[in-house]
């Protein structure tokens, strides 16, 4: 109740800062709707005049962006799906089953959190090279499935589900598979959503691994593809087209964010809360 005025003042100040924060994005969005010829002369102004959708038309038809987008969608979706399946299965075992070497195994998995991608991407590269599997979806997906954080989160979440529910289910003649599929998974929708969103965003924005694995222009993901055309800073493709590509490439992930932002923030709270 107290200090209403200064509270408001803070919100107004942060709101002004947010406007500044958004200016670059708005500017890029506006440029994506301006003709290349205009942009050659001046990039100034926050109104899309003269207005054109030609840039997007060019992205769709001429550039390989739709192709890259397809790879990104396939890779991110499959990666997310498989991560959810294997992480929740392993999490259930760690949280609810008794078996030999459970503790050391869990420690081994958690220790994997300390291994950064950069430490192993070269051996991974040589492995896939030996198998002749670079420039495939498999190569883009599989190294990203071994994420200990997923197992860790699901284990923590399953541990928070009352044990009595599972005991009731055992008396109700449920097998481990039934308990997992009919009790644990339905109760884990919030955790699965959060893990899924983060995996998807991570997969979509992955840069280093696709850069070294998907080296053929036809196999680029959208992230790597965009990097390849911004290399010469829009000279060859035209500034407007470059901006349109960026907007086009970000649209799906932005849409996902707008729909699920509630879960994302809640998920951060959950993963931090321990």
């Amino acid at each position: 109740m107290r200090n209403r005025f200064s509270d408001r003042l803070i919100v107004v100040a942060v709101a002004l800062f947010a406007v500044v924060w958004l200016i670059p994005v708005v500017w890029v969005l506006v440029m994506s709707f301006k003709p290349d010829e205009v942009l050659m002369r001046s990039t100034a102004g926050f109104l899309p005049v003269p207005f054109t959708i030609e840039n997007y038309a060019r992205v769709m038809t001429v550039a390989k962006v739709p192709n890259w987008l397809m790879h990104s969608v396939i890779v991110s979706f499959l990666m997310t799906f498989i991560v959810l399946v294997i992480s929740s299965m392993a999490g259930y075992a760690f949280a609810r089953l008794d078996f030999p070497f459970k503790r050391p195994l869990f420690v081994l998995v958690v220790a994997g959190l300390m291994v950064p991608e950069q430490a192993i991407f070269i051996p991974l590269h040589t492995m896939f090279a030996d198998w002749g599997m670079h420039n495939t979806h498999t190569a883009l997906i599989t190294p990203r499935l071994a994420v200990p954080i997923g197992v860790f989160l699901m284990t923590q979440f399953f541990r928070s589900i009352p044990r009595e529910l599972e005991e009731a289910a055992r008396l109700d003649h449920a097998s481990h598979a039934t308990i997992f599929l009919r009790i644990m998974l339905p109760l884990s929708v919030p955790a699965l959503t959060t893990l899924g969103l983060f995996t998807f965003i991570h997969g979509w924005n992955d840069y280093l691994w696709p850069l070294v694995s998907a080296t053929s222009k036809d196999m680029y993901t959208v992230t790597v593809g965009l990097a390849s055309i911004q290399g010469n800073f829009g000279q060859s493709e035209g500034l407007g087209t470059l901006m349109a590509s960026a907007v086009f490439a970000s649209a799906p992930i932005m849409l996902l964010f707008v729909i699920f932002q509630r879960f994302i923030v809640a998920g951060v709270a959950m993963s931090a809360g321990k």
Partner: peptide, 9 residues
């Protein structure tokens, strides 16, 4: 949520 390529662009 933007990819590093979009951010750097």
């Amino acid at each position: 949520v933007f990819s590093v390529t979009v951010v750097t662009l």
